[in-house]
Deep mutational scan, measured.
Amino acid sequence: LETFPLDVLVNTAAEDLPRGVDPSRKENYLSDEDFKAVFGMTRSAFANLPLWKQQNLKKEKGLF
């Protein structure tokens, strides 16, 4: 999966995202380093959170 810089994904409308980016899964296009910096946890820890908590975190970080 291709990764993009944080500033390309945060608070970006679906139509302005790079081609192929799923707007409902912007976090998947962050590098592992950016993911950890944004969410303060690994991808696996994030995946283990309840869906509502994942969505709330994504909203807080501008990735929803």
Rank of each mutant, 00 (worst) to 15 (best):
E15W: 03
D16R: 08
R43C: 03
P18L: 04
V8H: 07
P18F: 01
Q54F: 00
D7Q: 11
G62W: 03
F64N: 14
D22E: 06
K59D: 06
K59M: 11
S31M: 04
L49M: 10
V10Y: 05
F4V: 06
R43L: 05
K36S: 14
P23Q: 07
E27M: 03
E60Y: 06
R43H: 06
W52L: 08
R19M: 14
N48Y: 09
N56S: 14
Q55D: 13
N11Y: 06
S44R: 13
L49E: 05
F35N: 00
F64Q: 14
T3V: 13
D32C: 07
L9E: 02
P50H: 04
L57P: 00
M41V: 05
S44W: 13
L63G: 02
K36H: 15
S31P: 01
D16P: 06
S31N: 09
N48L: 14
L30D: 01
N48K: 13
D32P: 08
A37C: 10
L1R: 14
L57K: 05
K61F: 08
E60P: 01
K36R: 14
E15V: 12
N48H: 12
N28R: 09
F4T: 03
E27W: 02
V8M: 15
T12E: 06
Y29R: 02
N48A: 14
P23Y: 08
R19H: 15
E60M: 11
K53E: 15
L63S: 02
P23E: 07
V8D: 07
E60K: 10
F64W: 14
D34E: 08
F4M: 06
V10W: 05
Q55Y: 11
R25N: 09
F64R: 06
F35V: 01
R19I: 15
N48T: 13
V38N: 02
L6E: 02
A13I: 09
D22M: 04
K59L: 15
Q55V: 14
L57S: 02
S24Q: 13
Y29G: 02
F39W: 01
D34A: 06
N11F: 06
L30K: 00
L57D: 01
L63C: 06
T3I: 12
S24A: 14
G20S: 10
T42F: 05
W52K: 08
D7S: 14
D16C: 15
D16G: 08
Q55W: 10
A47M: 14
V38L: 11
P50E: 07
P18I: 04
N11R: 09
S24M: 15
Q54P: 00
T42I: 08
A47Q: 12
L9R: 02
R25S: 08
P5M: 04
F4E: 03
L1Q: 13
A13C: 13
F46K: 00
F4G: 03
R25P: 02
D16Y: 07
V21Q: 04
P18D: 04
V10C: 09
M41W: 02
V21K: 03
P5F: 04
N48S: 15
N48W: 07
V38G: 01
K58P: 00
G62A: 03
G20M: 07
F39Q: 00
Q54M: 04
V21I: 12
D22P: 03
T12C: 10
L63T: 01
V8W: 14
E27H: 03
L1D: 09
D16N: 11
R43Q: 06
S24V: 08
P50M: 02
S44H: 12
N11A: 08
